[in-house]
Computed example of a mutant assay.
Amino acid sequence: MSTSTPLRTALIGVALAATALVPLQGAALAAPSGTNTAATAASSSVSGIADATALALARSLADPAWNREVRRAALAADSVGLAGLTDDATAPAGRKLAAPIASADRGVATAKGLGSGAGSLLRLGLADASMRNRLASGAAPLVAAVPSDDDGRSTFTAYDSRGAAHELSLDSAPGRPVYLVDIDGAKAVAEGLKVIDKTLESKGLGTLAPAATSNLAAASGIDTTRIDSVRIGDVQEPFFKGDAEIFTLVTGFGKDGKPRVDTVEMPYLNKEDTTYYPGQVLVNWSDYKYDMADAVMMEDDGDTNYQALAKAIATVLLTITDQGVYIPLADALLEAIPTSWWTDDPDYVDSWYTLAKSSSGTRNGAAGNGWMSVSPYHVPEL
């Protein structure tokens, strides 16, 4: 979910399913000592960190001055970075929360396999625009992490300023505002694809073309395949989350005869059943041995660990050798992804086999979930 875009589509129809309050004890942003292995693992996952952050933030709202600061920020923008919000806080509770939020941001970056340059990733926004009037009128908000869609549950947990848990339903509108703690998906994808690029290059699966070829390309320009338009039927994003974060992995054989993978960020492709006209380069043919490549489109949907994803892809592709003819690699790439990841992690959207250098016109995805209109595009030298 992109927190750089409005959260108005998030959690449409959330309701209080129970009025009973469940007291919660212990620290909010760290697993208490003596917890079992499963609990510790959950606390170090993206969803676990987001939930603990939601609880800590909810408790901090018992400070009236800080409550007002958060309310003003939530009403002024669709979403706001939690690190910036706490760093700029004037109320004691907000200042006290700054260090735990910074620690939680680092935990999220680690859980997603991102580098230290990822910066702040946790964000806060209202679950739905319809809650603005009630929040502005002074209604006491609840705080929740954006729910995972991988467990089939019909409810999730939100917290009040006493640290008490409320079970919320996904089926109907609530009677009070709900703040959602979420991850900046756009930033996570951008940083994650850098991690994939760096990791695969270190394995020889994303190296640059040889110098002589590069010099020739520079002298005459570059032949590419461009996406003129694209449409996806289902972006694999549950209704209570906002915009999808789509990326594509292009794979084929490099000039050195080894499989290679190139990442393509697609931040515009975030709504289903919507046609986009990006004019985006999908394949740079100067990096490929054969005039064919495959494309696998995926979505970052939560606990994606990009370092682990890159290593899994490398492990499989390094077993494939060039047979002197083009071999589709899309299936090998998909098989590299562990079964457990096909939940609230990088969801498969669609794939395109044997895109040729000469391909032109509309190409339907193999899964029937989308199409792309492509054309050859020559990028002239400067």
Rank of each mutant, 00 (worst) to 15 (best):
V178F: 10
V178R: 09
Y179S: 04
V181H: 00
D182A: 15
D184P: 03
D184I: 05
A186K: 11
A186Y: 09
A188S: 09
A188I: 08
V189R: 09
E191L: 13
T199I: 11
L200I: 00
E201Y: 02
E201H: 01
E201Q: 15
S202D: 09
K203M: 05
K203P: 00
G206D: 01
G206R: 01
T207R: 08
L208Q: 14
L208G: 05
L208V: 04
A209I: 00
A209H: 06
P210R: 04
A212E: 14
T213C: 04
T213K: 09
S214T: 02
L216H: 00
L216P: 01
A217P: 09
A217M: 10
A217E: 10
A218G: 14
A218K: 15
A219W: 00
S220E: 07
D223C: 04
D228G: 08
V230C: 02
I232C: 03
D234K: 07
V235F: 07
V235K: 00
V235D: 11
V235N: 10
Q236P: 01
E237P: 01
P238G: 12
F240Q: 13
K241V: 03
D243R: 10
F247R: 08
T248M: 08
T248W: 09
L249W: 05
L249Y: 01
F253A: 07
G257I: 08
G257W: 03
K258D: 13
K258L: 00
P259D: 08
V261D: 05
D262T: 06
D262E: 09
V264A: 12
Y268D: 14
N270W: 12
E272R: 15
D273F: 15
D273M: 15
T275G: 11
Y276V: 13
Y277I: 02
G279W: 01
Q280P: 10
V281N: 12
L282M: 10
N284W: 07
